[in-house]
Design a protein around this nucleic acid. Structure first.
Lengths: 386, 386
DNA sequence: TTAACTTAGTTTATTGGATAGACAAACTAA
DNA sequence: TTAGTTTGTCTATCCAATAAACTAAGTTAA
């Protein structure tokens, strides 16, 4: 069993984390404010703040306004004390970003994925990471970690079990990158990363329970419950693209029938659009915006099926918000009505009272920003554990 | 924000909880064993154990075998230091139990629910509780709490928002019982209680992630994730009976279409059985065991639809086990094949590797035992918080 | 200008846990 | 008997949080 026991060091970690949290959220603010708001003694706050300053995570930035007494010394988190790399590895692109510890973008880099063969792709990925790392200003903590979002199922060791559209199986990406960079590496599904990105930096800021639905070639989902990413019992879940919405519908490669993503994904859209002579999403978006009736009906149909699945998700998880992301979010104007109507019709009233239907704000950058956030969050977790 | 700060009392609470946990799980065992296994210092363990003995939660029960030195003093949890009441309030019955703090049944009581009108039903419920309470031997902590499982949607204040089969709306049951008994009261959905009962005392013992599917008139679900009951964002979830499995299927009273419980519940079974001249589950079970072909096909059909929904659940939550409970679990012999086959066919391979399909062991008593467990768990939570 | 009052942050003595190590008690094995 | 082992308690020490006293640096009103 060996549950972790409590000692004085634990107390200090807990309280340091609290103080850091206040500075991260409320800065600039003074020691006195932290003490009052947190309930910690002034002396305790002073001591912990000093440790944080010594650790280069916090700095004094001058004095604030007096309210009839000594001026407060304002504290601020030092965002530039370290940097994080976030990568979105797509089926035909690699998108990467370098951010500071607040998620401010310092450098960005996009390139087409030349070869999908695993070795070559990983090489190109490493090149992208190295390039971004050289862009980082020198800082006390340097590069604190690398997060990578991938289009596939990832286990909790960061091994890509299966990435259908890349035709990858059992690629131990975390191990490969750890060997190469000797830095903390986080690998996760693109939808989980997207969920995190939107929750932290996008339309879902300050929403505690949200579900991100990544509608691309397939459908992936990322669940943020009680402010943190929910993983299934054994570390991977979110394969809700394979929720069956038509018990006797089309057979899916996964073995199930009537999977949601067979009716509501980009793939489903393109299949239906082929007879009309369309071959990609972009041309369909153009046709829709010029008002072509048959194309509008296609989108409306997709919107309805998206709604069917989302209603299911709402009934099961009862979240505060559902965020539609990835490529299909560009079709918002032509999806939204049908989607909204379907969800309202189908979700239970008790849940509907609360849930918001939103579209991703970061667009194609959700996943990459989420990956950077993962690396940042990992850094903070380590700081708090020391 | 006011996150709870850390102080010495917190350490003591944490470590006391650890020691108590070891005694609950591993008893009888000695102070030395606890120290060695937990990593806590011998002196610390001695001191905390003394507190627990003073608090009547632990007692010394003599010495154990020596392994070449002084004999250890064996410790045991005192199950009889308090008692809990667990109630299963059904549509046409009230089932109640009195247990000690280990969940051993001390007294049990079943009666038919005379009137479903809320006031009358609550009166009868109170009578049942009072009767059980008088059966409790005198003990240091007395009755530590009352748990009640109900067939409906419950919010986190213990108000029954909606119980379709009782035709109740907005009954503040927790408040009513608190006023009456001045004891800690926990109200929850019958399926959540059942999940807890099976996880603690039934077939799911020692399984950390399980999903309990209560198949009665409707279908309810209780999720135990990482050893604890999962509630949705706003305190109620588990309405997976209304997962749509046929996007364009039959309309449900909930507003959705093709809800799972319209195809796989007792109600669904009875509807299909009516043309054959059956009116209740019991007669169908008799017919099935005598081998009537058309009835067997009915059960097989229900089993298949149960499998469709369970495959969905498995894909979403990736649990260690799925437990089928409530009335329909009696039909196991005629459901199981079709169910198993469907799940294997439809669930993703990665999830299947792990998941077990089980049937409730406590039968009709799952929910009641879970309710008692809720009360017990509440007591321990309070002990650990002091 | 001064005295009275406020507020910010530090210093000091105290409290209450956990801990290592010494110790006593109780046992085994030779 | 004697040496060694195991259990459990006792004691001195450490360390983080805290209250209260204190210093620093401002405002306000006469």
């Amino acid at each position: 069993m060996t549950t972790k026991t409590g000692d004085q060091a634990l107390i200090k970690r807990i309280n340091t984390a609290i103080v850091l949290e206040y500075i991260l959220r409320g800065s600039p603010l003074s020691r006195a404010q932290i003490s009052e708001q947190s309930g910690l003694n002034k002396a305790t706050v002073s001591s912990l703040v000093q440790d944080l300053i010594d650790g280069a995570l916090v700095q004094e930035i001058g004095t604030g306004q007096s309210s009839g007494g000594r001026k407060p010394v304002l504290l601020e988190f030092v965002a530039s004390s370290g940097y994080a790399v976030g990568i979105d590895l797509g089926v035909n692109y690699i998108r990467g970003v370098l951010t500071d510890l607040r998620g401010n973008v310092v450098a960005e880099r996009t390139s087409a994925l030349r070869l999908t063969e695993p070795n070559a792709a990983v090489d190109q990925l490493c090149g992208c990471i190295e390039h971004l790392m050289t862009e980082a200003p020198s800082s006390p903590y340097g590069i604190v970690g690398i997060g990578v979002g991938v289009p596939g199922l990832v286990d909790d060791n960061g091994t890509i079990l299966f990435a259908p559209n890349l035709q990858w199986r059992d690629i131990p990406l975390q191990r490969l990158l750890t060997e190469k960079f000797s830095l903390p590496i986080t690998i996760d599904n693109e939808a989980n990363m997207g969920a995190l990105g939107e929750q932290k930096y996008g339309v879902g800021r300050s929403i505690n329970n949200l579900i991100y639905v990544s509608v691309g070639i397939g459908i992936g989902t990322g669940l943020i419950l009680h402010k943190s990413l929910y993983k299934g019992a054994s570390g991977f879940s979110g394969e809700m693209g394979h929720l069956s919405v038509e018990a006797h519908g089309k057979s899916c490669t996964c073995g199930n029938r009537g999977c949601w993503e067979m009716y509501a994904s980009e793939q489903a859209l393109l299949e239906q659009a082929a007879p009309l002579g369309f071959e990609d999403l972009e041309s369909l978006l153009v046709a829709a915006s010029s008002g072509r009736q048959d194309v509008l009906e296609l989108f409306s149909n997709i919107g309805e099926y998206l709604g069917v699945g989302i209603a299911n998700i709402v009934n099961v998880f009862n979240p505060d918000a559902v965020v539609i992301g990835n490529r299909m979010s560009q079709a918002r104007p032509w999806l939204e009505n049908a989607l909204r109507q379907t969800v309202v019709q189908r979700a239970l009233g008790f849940h509907l009272r609360k849930v918001q239907l939103l579209f991703a704000e970061l667009g194609e950058r959700s996943s990459m920003m989420g990956a950077a956030e993962m690396a940042i969050a990992g850094f903070f977790a380590r700081v708090k554990a020391t």
